[in-house]
């Protein structure tokens, strides 16, 4: 399935990927969910029109039993600069068909690659699904229950402690864990903010995201671990009150993180967010952080 997903963006091979799609497959991209072959095909064609036919410059596969993930970076063949766009796929499958797929595109990088203003690309994105976010108590009370990675999947012992500490950074804002679990030379890609060595930019980003919102709350959705047990993809989101020109907007930021762990240290991480879809969904002012 990984090859078929890649062949869509590099060759426009709709037929191969279509053979993996059911009548009831849901494909979520730019926070819009396409159902059935007609809507999904239209979404693919729109992507190809926007992206052009690109070449893969980096890929990482997370092969799980029922859920898998794929991270790819794509760039133009003819380009002389280093601009690229990354896409992360997280999908439920039975090795034959894809049932549900969530695809997050780094649309800020895409705008740069296409040399377009973000506002132009925002207009071209599909209208996101209606989302009605209920108010809730975001506090981590001593007797309340909040999902941790071990609740969501059986993590191998070799990575369990690292992944739980990684989640504490986001859920409990435990910034001291950065030092414990990241390799000094970790390669970190943050959607819209490029790649960095070491965790400092990621730590700054984490602080900015949480400080930009009041009552922020991180919720795990799903985790898939590669059979080699050294890499995993985490599907999660942040809810919070975003203050935009004096107006409070309750928002949800969907995220997929892909982590590679060696000797209990994170050596590589891709944090994927579709920023322009977020601006479109909540009519936010640019930039977010």
């Amino acid at each position: 399935m990984f090859n078929q997903l890649i062949a869509l963006y590099t060759e426009g091979d709709l037929a191969q990927l279509s053979s993996r799609i059911l009548h009831s497959t849901a494909w979520k991209q730019h926070d819009f969910t396409a159902y059935g072959s007609m809507q999904i095909n239209k979404l693919w064609l729109k992507s190809l029109e926007q992206f052009g036919f690109l070449q893969v410059t980096k890929q990482q596969e997370i092969q799980g039993d029922n859920f898998s993930a794929l991270y790819i970076e794509l760039s133009k063949e003819s380009t002389s600069n280093n601009e690229n766009v990354s896409i992360t796929f997280f999908f439920e499958h039975n090795n034959e068909h894809i049932k549900r797929l969530h695809c997050i595109v780094d649309t800020l990088a895409l705008a740069k690659l296409l040399q377009q203003e973000p506002s132009v690309l925002i207009d071209a994105l599909p209208t996101p699904d209606p989302l009605l976010l209920s108010q809730f108590d975001h506090q981590l009370h001593p007797k309340s229950y909040h999902a941790t990675p071990n609740d969501v999947c059986d993590l191998p012992n070799s990575i369990s402690e690292t992944v739980n500490q990684w989640w504490n950074i986001w859920q409990e804002k435990q910034l001291a864990s950065f030092k414990n679990i990241y390799s000094d030379s970790a390669k970190i890609q943050i959607a819209g903010f490029g790649s960095h060595e070491g965790f400092k930019q990621l730590r700054d980003f984490q602080l900015k995201v949480h400080n930009r919102m009041n009552r922020s709350y991180c919720q795990l959705e799903n985790i898939c671990v590669d059979k080699a047990e050294s890499s995993l993809a985490v599907k999660w989101h942040i809810d919070g009150d975003y203050i935009d020109n004096g107006k409070i907007k309750r928002i949800r930021v969907p995220v997929i993180s892909v982590l590679t762990i060696e000797n209990k240290h994170i050596v590589e991480e891709q944090l994927q967010i579709d920023w322009l879809a977020l601006y479109k969904q909540y009519d936010l002012s640019y930039p977010f952080v």
Partner: peptide, 13 residues
Amino acid sequence: GGRQSTGLAQISG
């Protein structure tokens, strides 16, 4: 109406 929740805190809300 588009109410999508994940986890106990959001469902409770």
